[in-house]
Design a protein around this nucleic acid. Structure first.
Length: 431
RNA sequence: GGAGAGGUGCCAGAGUGGCCGAAUGGGGCGCCCUGCUAAGGCGUUGUCCGUGUAAAGCGGACCGAGGGUUCAAAUCCCUCCCUCUCCGCCA
């Protein structure tokens, strides 16, 4: 949520920042919010004045009663004011609800350094190779779903039988590889990050804090009977870990990491990436997340980029780092980078991580604040997160990049400790 | 799922309609006292909204959440959530 007071006091600069997102309806929403805010403050003023008078009259009634005098006249005035107050309170609740809904749908203000752009085509490659297909051998040009089926490590058909389209299932060494990737990502960050095993089902409030609700409800699985949602990412429960709390400045930054399943309806992606493991309704991911002071945030963003890229680089996968432009920035994002891995078999750059800084946008929604020593009052914290490792796409990239001429897949050495001694996944006939 | 108990400030805990934003104790912070420590004395200690250039001040709200009754609600009524105990069920 953006700061409504900032919108109130500096509407022009807020509008200018929002305009950079190249989404025309956003400005209309901002203007709508501004109008609602004005109305709400008018109501507040009148309602508080009425309330103040009622409080005063109530004291008079008490005094009159104690003096054994008639209080009926005072009570009558108070009654009338009470009626007026009730009307105002109703309108207040109504306006507030609409304002809240509008505010929840207004995206975050992009950081000044984010490059201007209309969409994903304008994202800038910050680091890494422009794709050079020639350097890949023919035996690497086999899509992972083919290799996976041949090696018996991916059983998409049965996954579909069990759960329907866009679910996947790994078997044997393939299942071990998926789990190894999780373990690897967790172990690599355990030096500074507390491991959390969060719930996979969360409340509406939790999913609202991070920004998935209310605007992207269609993307999440809901469990209506119990008013719960399946998490689309561990970002949701991790961010709400400190919801409603006031953190001491000296305790920041706090760093968390979590393995979790992620559930996505992929409502807008019907027909896309239907084969293999590039897009599915359920996948595993290791997420890292930090809550910081505003000053700590930029350095934390750098730390996240470093950690994620090193993690990928040490697997031996070709990757590149992109800075997301204003037109492609997610709703909650203040600034973000994507890490993409090249998969030669399907000839695609696969997004395996998104590193994001949310400024105080999520913290305001989730009410995560910090207190500075010696200073009165509180302020909103900053949140950042990154996928440390999105399992299926990295799995796919490994199977494609490390496929050898005989159809085997060589396991990256950093994963050997987690593979029960297996270093190469060989075709059945040569085992 | 059934029965019972309970949710009050940083913590413990009092408060059953007005003088309660809330006793008391502990903790924290500040000052004083003491050679040091211990003990002690005095003071102070929440959040949010509106108003205000800001501070001060003023007004409002907050005793799990939401609604209701009343001139007036921490206190009475209703619904929900959560915690604890016992029973049942279960990994």
């Amino acid at each position: 949520m953006i700061d409504v007071r900032l919108l109130r006091t500096q509407p022009d600069s807020v509008r200018a920042a929002l305009a950079r997102r190249a989404k025309p309806d956003v400005l209309e929403q901002a203007d709508h919010a501004l109008a609602l805010d004005t109305r709400l403050r008018d109501i507040t003023t009148e309602r508080d004045a009425a309330r103040a008078r009622v409080n005063e009259l109530s004291k008079q009634v008490a005094e009159l009663r104690r003096a054994k005098l008639d209080a009926e006249a005072v009570m009558a005035e108070s009654r009338a004011l009470g009626d007026r107050e009730k009307v105002l309170a109703e309108e207040y609740a109504q306006v507030e609800a609409v304002l809240r809904d509008v505010l929840l749908r207004i995206p975050n203000l992009p950081h000044d350094d984010v490059t201007q752009g209309m969409g994903s085509d304008d994202n800038q490659v910050v680091r890494g190779p422009e794709q050079l297909p020639a350097q890949f051998a023919d035996h690497q040009r086999v899509p992972h779903w083919e290799t996976g089926a041949t090696l018996g490590i991916l059983d998409s058909e049965r996954a579909v039988k069990i759960s329907g389209a866009m679910f996947t299932m790994q078997r044997g060494a393939g299942a071990a590889l998926a789990r190894a990737l999780c373990q690897y990502a967790l172990d690599r960050n355990a030096d500074a990050y507390e491991e959390i095993r969060p719930p996979s089902l969360v409340t509406t409030a939790t999913l609202t804090a991070t920004g998935q609700l209310p605007k992207f409800a269609d993307e999440a699985y809901s469990i209506e009977r119990d008013d719960l949602w399946c998490i689309p990412t561990a970002e949701a429960p991790l961010t709400s870990l400190h919801a409603g709390e006031i953190l001491d400045e000296t305790s920041l930054p706090v760093r968390y990491m979590a393995f979790s399943p992620c559930f996505r309806r992929e409502a807008g992606a019907a027909g896309r990436d239907t084969r293999g493991m590039l897009r599915s309704h359920e996948f595993d991911k290791v997420e890292i997340l930090a809550v910081t002071t505003p000053e700590q945030a930029p350095a934390m963003l750098d730390e996240f980029v470093q950690r994620v890229t090193h993690l990928i680089a040490d697997l031996g996968l070709p990757y590149r780092l992109l800075e997301i432009c204003t037109g492609d920035l997610g709703q909650s994002h203040h600034r973000s980078f994507d890490v993409e891995v090249y998969a030669p078999g399907c000839d695609q750059w696969l997004e395996v991580s998104s590193v994001s800084w949310f400024s105080d946008y999520q913290a305001r929604r989730g009410d995560i604040r910090l207190r500075r020593s010696g200073k009165k009052g509180t302020e909103f914290a900053h949140t950042l997160n990154a996928s440390a490792l999105a399992v299926p796409r990295v799995w796919a990239a490994i199977v494609e990049n490390f496929r050898t001429a005989d159809g085997s897949v060589v396991i990256p050495p950093v994963l050997h400790p987690y593979m029960r001694g297996l270093t190469v996944i060989r075709p059945p006939q040569s085992r």
